[in-house]
């Protein structure tokens, strides 16, 4: 199982901050992004999100395996 975290306007669109998906093999963050939207519907702006696996930034090609947490981080606005 992969845990997906959504924030700010992505969480608002998905109407949840956390989504789990079952996986049978390792896959890329890009594939996770596709599976996520198959499950919760299209998320506007997700293509601009920063990507993190287990709290570290990764590229779209980053690998995700069972048990990992993937976060889609919309453009940040702290400070």
């Amino acid at each position: 199982m992969i845990n997906i975290l959504l924030f700010a306007n992505l969480a608002q669109q998905a109407e949840t901050e956390k989504v789990s998906i079952e996986v049978n093999s390792a896959l890329s963050v890009k594939e996770v992004r596709t599976l996520l939207q198959q499950k919760v519907g299209k998320l506007t702006g997700i293509e601009n999100a920063l990507l993190a696996v287990n709290e570290e930034y990764v590229e779209l090609t980053g690998q995700v395996k069972d048990g990992d947490t993937v976060a889609f981080i919309p453009p940040v606005s702290g400070g």
Binding site: A52, Y57, I73, V76, G79
Partner: peptide, 10 residues
């Protein structure tokens, strides 16, 4: 902070 820290303002 404004580039890399995952914090969002509404």
């Amino acid at each position: 902070i404004k580039e890399i820290v995952p914090i969002w303002k509404k």
